[in-house]
Amino acid sequence: MKVHILDDWFDTLRGLPCFDLLKDHDVTVWTDHEPDEAKLAARLADADCVVLFRERTKVTRTLLDQLPTLRLISQRGAYPHVDVAACTDHGVLLCSNTGADGANYAAAELTFGLILSAMRQLPQQMASAKAGGWQMGVGRTLRGRTLGLYGYGKIGRAVADYARAFGMKVLWWASDAGLERARADGEPVAESREAFFAGSDVVSLHLRLTDTTRGIVTGADLAQMSPRSVLVNTSRAGLIAPGALLAGLNAGRPGMAAVDVFDTEPLTDAADPLLSHPNLIATPHIGFVTEDEFDKQFADIFDQVNAYAAGAPIHMINPDAAGQ
């Protein structure tokens, strides 16, 4: 099959063990992002299969209209960026392993790195030292402080393990089902949503972005947080109501935020009011960007390509498209 891989910005995949899984296919790797849909369609004109790099490119109905040879889209995880109904209408099968075993430890590690960075002022201290200013302030110790984790999933539980190793207290909030699982596991659950946000020195979000969770963290939630608290988000920007984080930082509640995700990505406007906020620590959506995590994720993705080529597709999201 003619397989096109999109958005491998640092040409990483060709150097990973998993890439050998595609040895029997005609593979094209695109190492830039093409935002113009017509130009993207021209690139993919001969594609039988498109491999998506997380959510970097949206697959719309109008794009699919221009790709008559496309039969398979292979990716991993959630797929809010893919018009599944349009895929089915065009006879394009979407395969995505949404129930992969194990936590995304790369994202969990980055989460805790951001917590440390915010509490110890690491970006600011580094900038001051490199500018010849030496120390610029006084950070805070994690031991004895409370980490509030919103979302009782695999990544959140991995972060909880790291926090406890640092002597932090852990407090949970989640959906009703998530809270029930937490209680069954003997985990400490906040008495109320208000108590969760008010009682946490650090709040970290670990929810999938769905229609139900979009905007689930509101301005009222952030207003409950202490002026010395930190909000961390390595999940999805859309979990926070539009404009609420910037308004909260401007109001001093929370006192600081450390985020890996933005409503617009890639965000390249250095003057963006959230990105440039003095109380924001930012990384450019690198929670999953490690060689180890890429090899694990793309092994699944390439296995899906091979399964389809063998006539036995796996992880089908829209199986009705398979027989078209």
Rank of each mutant, 00 (worst) to 15 (best):
I240L: 09
I240F: 07
I240R: 08
I240A: 09
I240Y: 05
A241F: 00
A241K: 01
A241G: 03
P242V: 10
P242N: 11
P242G: 10
G243S: 05
L245R: 11
L245Q: 10
L245C: 11
L246P: 11
A247E: 15
A247W: 11
A247H: 14
A247S: 15
G248P: 10
L249A: 08
L249I: 10
L249H: 10
N250H: 14
N250C: 15
N250M: 15
N250F: 11
A251P: 10
A251I: 12
G252S: 10
R253C: 12
R253P: 08
R253K: 14
R253L: 12
P254F: 13
P254V: 12
G255D: 12
G255R: 13
G255W: 13
G255P: 12
G255V: 11
M256H: 15
M256G: 14
M256W: 15
M256P: 13
A257T: 15
V259K: 12
V259W: 11
D260G: 07
D260K: 09
V261M: 14
F262M: 15
F262K: 09
D263L: 15
D263N: 09
T264P: 07
T264A: 15
E265H: 14
P266K: 02
P266E: 05
T268S: 10
T268D: 12
D269M: 08
D269V: 06
D269E: 15
A270G: 10
D272S: 05
D272W: 07
D272Q: 06
P273N: 14
P273A: 09
P273Q: 08
L274N: 04
L274E: 00
S276C: 02
S276A: 07
S276W: 03
H277C: 06
H277F: 02
H277E: 08
P278G: 02
P278W: 08
L280E: 02
L280D: 00
I281T: 03
I281V: 00
I281F: 01
A282Q: 02
A282L: 00
T283R: 03
T283M: 03
P284D: 01
I286Y: 00
I286F: 03
I286S: 02
F288E: 05
V289C: 09
V289H: 12
T290R: 01
T290M: 01
T290K: 00
E291Q: 04
E293W: 02
F294D: 02
F294L: 01
F294S: 00
D295H: 01
K296E: 07
Q297Y: 07
F298K: 03
F298C: 01
A299Q: 06
D300H: 08
D300Q: 07
I301V: 03
F302V: 03
F302P: 03
F302R: 00
V305Q: 10
V305A: 09
N306G: 05
N306F: 04
N306W: 04
A307M: 09
A307K: 12
A307Y: 07
Y308F: 14
Y308D: 10
Y308H: 09
Y308V: 04
A309I: 05
